[in-house]
Structures are given as structure tokens and as C-alpha cells.
Design a protein around this nucleic acid. Sequence first.
DNA 1: CCTCACAAAACTGTCAACACTTCGAGCTCT
DNA 2: AGAGCTCGAAGTGTTGACAGTTTTGTGAGG
Lengths: 223, 223
Amino acid sequence: MNERDCQHSDELDLPASNGGTLAEQVYDRLSEAILAGELAPGAKISEPALARQYGVSRGPLREALHRLQERKLITRSANHGARIVKPSPEALAELFVVREALEGMAARLAATNATADEIARLRALVDQNAIDDQDFHFTIAQCSRNPMLIGLLCGELYSLLRLYRGLPLGVRPRSQRAQIEHERIVSAIEDRDADLAEMQMRRHIASARMRREAALAKDQAQA
Amino acid sequence: MNERDCQHSDELDLPASNGGTLAEQVYDRLSEAILAGELAPGAKISEPALARQYGVSRGPLREALHRLQERKLITRSANHGARIVKPSPEALAELFVVREALEGMAARLAATNATADEIARLRALVDQNAIDDQDFHFTIAQCSRNPMLIGLLCGELYSLLRLYRGLPLGVRPRSQRAQIEHERIVSAIEDRDADLAEMQMRRHIASARMRREAALAKDQAQA
DNA sequence: CCTCACAAAACTGTCAACACTTCGAGCTCT
DNA sequence: AGAGCTCGAAGTGTTGACAGTTTTGTGAGG
């Protein structure tokens, strides 16, 4: 049970949040809580309870909830309250298709626009095996020099990916297969071969999708 | 006792809006107003003024503004208010790159997943010349059978496209060039050729991007 | 004439209180 | 006992008011 020691006052202060306004702080804390899995998927959100928990009034909380609604992290229906979005295998598959398209384009642009320093950093990331997958993909997105693409990949899609995988951004060792695929992508970027970079990235995402779908199917078979 | 309710007030009623809550109605009206260009890009939003205009209190209005912020239709900074986002040539170029990736993927999926009826509808759209471009692209997105892709293309990206082009979803005659490109895309889908469908769609988007960038550059040269 | 300081107006952020809806416990009737 | 109704409790939607900040307008001084 994740219940705190103190019974009556679960009031959590918000000192570490960067946002100036309470609504922003609550938004940051709430999105992090949802993505970290602290709030169960599909669970109903009680505005008074959450407001007490975070030590704010319902006004800022509702503003944060509306932002989360637009980010599709919660669903809201009038007079029926808000619920944490529940990940589904279908949504996961859809997400990977979108990622394949966007990250493929990012790799294509990176092959053209990346600086020598950035390519060196990518090469270093691949050569040392202990890095996490996200760092690699984020770095390539940055190399695309396309802020909208970067925002989609590193913001919205990455959030949904965290939610669907149900893991707290873990640095788990990636497979040998992924290691090889990463190396091929970097090689293509080093060669400034845009077509090949896109193709390798798309194969990499498709491969990751199949692995993850298999793992998810096995999890659901157990449950 | 200066009641200005009925005389010359700018108070706009919200009868036609579908949403049950005031916040939703204001959200719909505001996003439509921004996308239609009724609110000047870059203009500052005064919460009291807008609240009076729409005949609601500041609470629901602020909730709608937070949703618009997450949709990137407005920008907000603490204690400094909200501003309508200002389109830039750079953002337009970025948008077309993202569209090229996503619509290419949609065409690929459509070649695989579209039903015979849907393909017939696409063929009809191409054969009759008077259709507008958006209808064609939306239909292909629907054929992808990927709700997340459909939501991105028909929702967020389409909104930004409307905003950046500054036109009210006009049914303007498309060029002969676009007509030919549409026909090639539909032919590839009819042949169930996923690779070709994606390539033709990406060329079509890239061609549209170059035409629009040229038009925008000319406009800015005049001004 | 320009600049700076200062006060007032306006605005944003926040809160507590008020309507209306929804849900559930308990009662009634068959 | 079980189905349906009633009424109270809880929750959501909305409002107006209050506190702190930013901006504006004004006047003195250089």
C-alpha cells in the first residue's frame, strides 16, 4: 500500500516545482504522477480530494486538469468527472506507427542537418553500451533542427509511450538487436545518407513495436 | 446603475455550441475564432474583456485558455497574460515536414486498409475537379484505420495549417499540378501499392510546401 | 524636452461560496 | 424478497470577491 504514515493530512507541499503559478505546479506534478504510474490508469479523479492533497483550491486544479485533457492524459465528461486514461494494446500499436513516421523523418533530417559534434555524440552514445534508448532517440530528434518535430517526439509522444509501457523511464539494458540497429542508424547519419537513415530508423521502430507488443500480449495472457 | 446589458453590449450568446459546460462552449468558440483569423495573431488576450464578450465569468474562460495553451494556439506567461500565437514562415515549413511524414504514413496504411467503397469515394473525389484539398486528405487519413494518426492529421495539424495559411477553409481551385498528384496517389492506393502511395503522397506534400512557401515569401515581399 | 520616480488603475492568480447534477442509501409498495 | 421511488450526500460547474503583480499615467527634477 502506498498510504502515507499520517492519516488525516496527506497535504503535499509543492516547493520543488519550477512553475510560478500554482496551476502550473499542479500540472507538472500531476502529469508526472500519471506518467510514473502513481495514479492508476482508469481511476476516477476527485477534484476535492486532489485539491486537498496538493494543498490548493479547486480553481488551479481544474485549470491543470483541462491542460491534461488536451494532452489526452485524462478524459473528462461533463458532470461525470475526470478519469486517468487507460492504455490499450490498440493505442500502443497506433503510437508506434506514428513514431515510425516521425522518427524516420527525424533521422532523415538529422543525416542532413546534424553538426559534426552532434554526430560524435551519437557515436559515443552507441559505442558505450549502458545508455538508455530514449537518450539516443532524443538526440536524433534534436539533430533534425525542426522544433515542431522535436516537440512532438520529445513531448507528447514520449509521454504517451511512458504511460503505455508502464515503466518509470527505466534505464534497462537494451537488447543486442537494438544495439546493432542503433549502430546502423548512426552509420547512415555519419555518411550523410538521408534515405538510408530514415529506412534504418523505421525498421528500428517497427522492430521495437513488435517486441513490445509481444511482451504486452504475454503480460495480458498472464493476467 | 448603468446597466449596459441590453443596449450596446458586445455580449455574444452561445446558443449553437454543442458542449454542455460553459468552458467547452467558450473553448469551441475561441478556437474557431482564432483559426478563422477573427482574433489578430500576436494580439494580447484580456481575460475580463473576453469574459464580458462571451457573457461568462473568468473561471470557465481561464479553463478554455489553458486548453488552448496546450494546443499551442495561444502562449501564456505567468502574470503577463495570454497572446494569440503568431504564425511564422519557419513554423509553416516545420508543419509541412511533419505533415509529409504523417500523411505519407497515412497513404501507406490506406493502400493496405482502405475498403473498396472508400477507394471508390477517393476516385470520385479525384474525378470531379471541384473538390477541396482538405476533403481528399481527410478521406485518406480515415482510410488509415489509425485513430491516433487521424486525430493528429485532422485535428491538431489541420488547425495549425488553417492558422498559418490565414484562410477560412476556402474551397479554392487547386492547381493542375495538384490534380495530377492526387490522381497518382489514388492510383497507387487502387493498386494496393503501399510503397508507391507513400512516395506519391510525400511528393505531393513537398510540392505543396514549396508552392505555399513561395506564395508566402511573395506576400511578405509586398508588405 | 527627456528621464525618472511614484501612485493609481488594470490585470492575473487564487480562493471560498453557491447552483445544479449525479450517485447511492434507505424506504415503500407489490 | 425484489423492484422502484425518494431524499440526502457528494461532486462538478460557475460565480464574485480578494491579494499580489504588472502596466500606465502623471508630475517633479535634471
